[in-house]
Design a protein around this nucleic acid. Sequence first.
DNA 1: TTGAAAGCGCTAACAA
DNA 2: TTGTTAGCGCTTTCAA
Lengths: 364, 364
Amino acid sequence: MAATPSRRSPRRADEAMTIYDVAEAAGVSTATVSRVVNGNYPVSAATRSKVEAAMQRLGYVTNAHARALAGSGRRLIGILIEELGDPYFASIARGAQLEAAAYGRLSLVCNTRGSSDLEDSFLDLLLEHRADVVVVVGGATSDDRYQEINRVRATRLASTGCRLVLCARPPLTDVSTTIGVQFDNEQGAFAVTDHLLALGHRRILYLGGPPTLSTTMNRIAGFERAHRTHGRSVDPTMIITGPFTQRWGYQRMQQLLDAEPAFTAVFCGNDLVAAGAYQAIKEQGLTIPGDLSVVGYDDIPIARVLDPALTTVRVPTEAIGREAVRAGLAHLADGPADPYTDPDEAASLGTSLIIRGSTAEPRD
Amino acid sequence: MAATPSRRSPRRADEAMTIYDVAEAAGVSTATVSRVVNGNYPVSAATRSKVEAAMQRLGYVTNAHARALAGSGRRLIGILIEELGDPYFASIARGAQLEAAAYGRLSLVCNTRGSSDLEDSFLDLLLEHRADVVVVVGGATSDDRYQEINRVRATRLASTGCRLVLCARPPLTDVSTTIGVQFDNEQGAFAVTDHLLALGHRRILYLGGPPTLSTTMNRIAGFERAHRTHGRSVDPTMIITGPFTQRWGYQRMQQLLDAEPAFTAVFCGNDLVAAGAYQAIKEQGLTIPGDLSVVGYDDIPIARVLDPALTTVRVPTEAIGREAVRAGLAHLADGPADPYTDPDEAASLGTSLIIRGSTAEPRD
DNA sequence: TTGAAAGCGCTAACAA
DNA sequence: TTGTTAGCGCTTTCAA
């Protein structure tokens, strides 16, 4: 019955209790305490309650680091997000955390502020903490440098047994250890453009989104396909790209309105740009949708508050966050089984058209 | 020159390199590798570069768990937030993360969805990971149960050497190990009410915010003090409390407008309620600020987009997040020295009045 | 059903 | 300047 020797050094007040303390207090070995804690091995009822009482009394809290070192315990899930203050990204992060929590996992959200360097340093930190899955959300441009940077990252992560999930950003070509989860922006842009064309609009302006963003390119592709489907072609001067900001939407729309506007509807690259466009349109004394129909993209909370409420495309942000974590976990050796999904298939989530008060038939 | 023996077991592909692998590859001991990694001890230039080359070649990544176990390495900072999707909370989280990052700390944001149980389970997880500082943000009611729950939490956290920081929620009475950081809501409410009174309004309605929230009580206190300062008393029927939602603001304002409105200005408990009130007011064919002045609180992004733009009170959300982390760190034994702040003084951050287009002199 | 003991990867005395 | 070694708290064979 001789228990494992107790802790060797004197304790400080703010030092946590260890399994040794509990073992000593309960008069059992540390192995037994471990078995009680994990409940994965038979322990007699009497011993169990002795140990549980001791744990309770001492306020014992498992040390996740020791457990991780010993090769057990759940690993972390990292969620790298471009901007926490942006409800679009925040909602994706929210979904990802919810899904992680559903698997009993601790996930941490890191705000990269759009900086690739910050992204890297968070990635390092996550690597050091031996995260399981890292989800990188949103906003990257899809040039060669991007591909290269992320290929390197994927390799580094893979070397510690961690999966990289690219969420709502361009997938990597030729990297088998990376998972991509995206929105089907082409389809969303198609739907909202089709809505305008069906109302009878013939001159539609596309306004905003950096041309370097794959998101923008996909939206423009949908915009063009809708025109083709209606037997029309797109006037290239009707496509104007720029930053995804309210300020830019306001200023650019002002300029367009000062010249003779040759359009009856505006497809804004996102809701923020639409909010800016609203301002400019109202200042000109024009009405929405009487003089001009306006649509946005993303359906952020602002869309509902604008006057009139904005017709827009809702992207399933929370769902994509969940999907990203689910896909990452599914790729793990011991991940949850998912018979319905082919793990090698990059998910693409559909969007929905939300028709509100900012669209109507053209006046003329 | 005999190096430390190499790792004992064969390696799997996704197993990370260890300090043993590096030591072996560089022909040095693990202690030397550790010294190179930490750079806190003299190592000859030649040895250093040999080790660095080996680390590079093998793709070595420090194991944060092992480091933590060995009693070194930085601990985590936890940020528990009521709702990530709410820009108000998101901004606080953002500030907290920024400040943590400034100290080279990894912080994790957890979305508790307002559930005390979820809050507890995240707290457990954080405890297991031996977080340094836990910041709990916002929204709690300040009853006896709240005090009790948090007293227990503070004690548990303290037993693992972790500080609890209550941010933008009521401070604890009689618990020395807890830190409180708050907004001065009384002052903000005073300022915006004073603004309305100075414009000449005499009948001002206070609309919204759960009466159980200390935030609400503080705002009402400021509302009343402003009246007293102007030599007026508040008609109790002019204070209406309710949930902080747009829907409630809309419905409640509809009812008030259906009856004979006995007020010329409305102080909404937050901007969301104001957005709802706007809808109801406009539907009645009334104008803002012509027929009715409206003010909000918080200055969330929606405030700027409302038409007319909303006069409101800006609370320094990002600053309070930073302050919370700073205060938590300052309380640590080895925390950053801060000669300017008394660590035992609960911080209270001032607010600013943002005057926009929704307030004017009363018509009558 | 329980205990003894060997690691997990790293740091920090202590020796050399 | 470098190496040896004893832990940190936990899990997990292997024995009893």
